[in-house]
Amino acid sequence: MNVIEVKNLCKTFKVKEKEKGFIGSIKSLIKPKYKKIEAVKDISFDVEKGQIIAFIGPNGAGKSTTIKMLTGILYNDSGTINVMGINPNKKRKKLAYEIGCVFGQKEQLWTHLTPYDNFKFFGSIYDLENSVIEKKIKEFKEIFELDEFINTPVRNLSLGQRIRCEIVASLIHDPKILFLDEPTIGLDPIVKENIRTLIKRMNKEYKTTIFLTSHDVGDIEKLCKRVIIVNKGEIVLDDSMENLKYHYLNKKIIELKMKEKVNLDDSKGITILKDKGYNLKLEVDTKKTSISDALKLIDANNIIDINISNVPLEDIIKSIYKGEK
């Protein structure tokens, strides 16, 4: 079952253009010039129930714009959006009961209130009965380990604690889809890991569909089974995580530590990434040269240490952003 269906989605922003300096400002006052920016160009995709999907791309690619259109904050110029069978443009309030949003860089909690009071408040916004809210808070308190600070005003919480509360506040009404916009931004590795585990657990226990944007490759790698990459407002890749990795598995990184200096040059299928005499780093394209052929170039008796690994996901994504295939 598809919970999100997007077809031929487009959004153009009109941005004021100003010439430089004071005179430019005066000119734009009298005769404002506008530049059209196509933030989203003809995007189509479907998301199935229960999926964790990564929606990634470089800055300014149109990720947030797309999320904001999916959640009914922005209006699309053309194309159709269908979230849980609802058109976000027409029934924003009705949609609000079905979805939850966490924007890692913005706050929705009331800073003077404790997380507990906040959750009660957000629960009542969604017309939940008091007893239901209490039950939910108890549940989340355990899952998200909020016990320590549930009665501390939000302004006194650390960023990691606050983000956990932000996520809970967005989950209090049992949304079917959770939109996470950079939920782990600014967090330390342990808290990041913690939040990822929680998101995974939630996806398993409540079958919540999760739509995630992040610049953190770890988030994507550990959480998502499917990746959509957008760049300049267009989808450049929509594939499963496995395929994405497999596609680039033909490239291997070989790191060598040698007893003696070796002189190696770029040859067919082999690229020298780093050459420090005793230490070498090579990239081998196994479609052109097999690993064993590559290793034949090196005197096996001289090897102290060897490490053969896949190209890191981060590099794969980087090369896709740059438009290399």
Partner: peptide, 14 residues
């Protein structure tokens, strides 16, 4: 200006 309207617009109230 700050964009926090994103949090208030998609709540089930006017």
């Amino acid at each position: 200006k700050s964009g926090s309207i994103a949090y208030t617009l998609n709540k089930p109230y006017s």
